Simulated assay, not measured.
Amino acid sequence: MTQTTQGTPRRAPAEPFRATLARFATAQKGAARSAPAYSRFVNRRLGRVLAAWAYRRGLTPNAVTGISALCTFSAIALLAGAAPSWPLGVAVSLLLVLGYAFDSADGQVARLTGTGSPAGEWLDHMVDATKIVTLPIALGVGLYRFEVVEHGWLLVPALHAIAGSVYFFGMILTEQMRRAAGVVSAAATGGRAPWLRSVLGIPTDYGTTCLVFLLLGAPTLFFVGYAAIVAATVAVALAAAVSWYGQLRRLAAAGGTE
């Protein structure tokens, strides 16, 4: 999830695409060493290619955010409106992957062009918050409409919507409260990557959610994979909530407040 911005388009310099891509590679901030594997090694690189493409066409970061939203919410609409099948799964997965990559690209364009703004960050977070809750809801609607699973299993996507929304809100709120206390979080980006932590993060990686829809043509297999993602999301959200609460209590104690 990246920061997007407002700003006027800038005409790309007359240079080969490869040269533009290289400038993005050297100008961007490093990815957190503990970031889940797909987000770090796949999505960020896809986003860099799309960012270079958007920059050369003079697109603003907010326009890139709009493309991301269009791809993502088209996939969400398909989930709610079409019967599960292999073609549907491929289409949904491809659109979600593109939406996620453009979500990375908007922040990269913003940083390279220096057009960051609070309004752009707000827009990016609003799109993220909306997709987090509407994706599992749309899945539940589609599963119900086409009677893919027993109705009791529809609690799984409902739980996903709750856990995902709470986790995202908690992450944003905790960061804002840390900043208010004068603490700015900064994930380590240098040195060797902790591969185990990146691999362990795969079940809760949004990229994994994008890819699991490739199994939509085999509903039972898909639901097993999807349920595992939801279980991991719930576990991480609970663990993060406990950790965040403890951190904020310690900050309060250090500042002499409760």
Rank of each mutant, 00 (worst) to 15 (best):
M1H: 12
R10D: 06
R10W: 03
R10K: 15
R11K: 15
A12M: 01
R18M: 06
A19F: 01
L21E: 08
L21M: 05
A22D: 09
T26M: 07
G30Q: 15
R33W: 00
S34H: 14
A35I: 00
Y38G: 10
Y38P: 12
S39N: 14
R44D: 10
R44L: 12
R45A: 14
L46H: 05
G47C: 10
A51M: 13
W53L: 14
A54Y: 08
R57E: 07
G58A: 11
L59E: 07
G66K: 12
A69M: 13
T72Y: 05
S74P: 07
A75L: 12
A77F: 10
W86C: 06
L88H: 10
A91Y: 07
L94G: 14
A101W: 02
F102P: 11
S104C: 11
A105G: 04
G107M: 10
R111S: 10
G116R: 15
P118L: 13
G120L: 09
G120S: 13
E121D: 10
L123R: 15
M126A: 14
V127Y: 03
A129P: 05
T130P: 04
T134G: 02
T134E: 01
P136H: 03
I137Y: 02
A138I: 00
L139P: 04
V141Y: 06
G142V: 05
L143C: 11
E147I: 00
P157V: 02
L159Y: 01
A161P: 08
A161F: 07
G164T: 04
S165F: 06
V166N: 02
F169A: 15
G170A: 05
E175A: 14
Q176C: 04
M177R: 15
A180M: 09
A181M: 09
V184W: 05
T189R: 13
P194V: 03
R197N: 14
L200P: 07
G207P: 04
F213W: 08
L216W: 04
F223W: 12
F223S: 04
V224S: 02
I229W: 00
I229E: 00
V230N: 04
V230Y: 05
V230E: 06
T233V: 03
T233M: 11
A239E: 03
A239I: 00
S243K: 14
Y245I: 08
G246Q: 07
Q247I: 00
A252L: 06
A254D: 12
G255L: 05
G255N: 14
G256A: 02
G256Y: 02
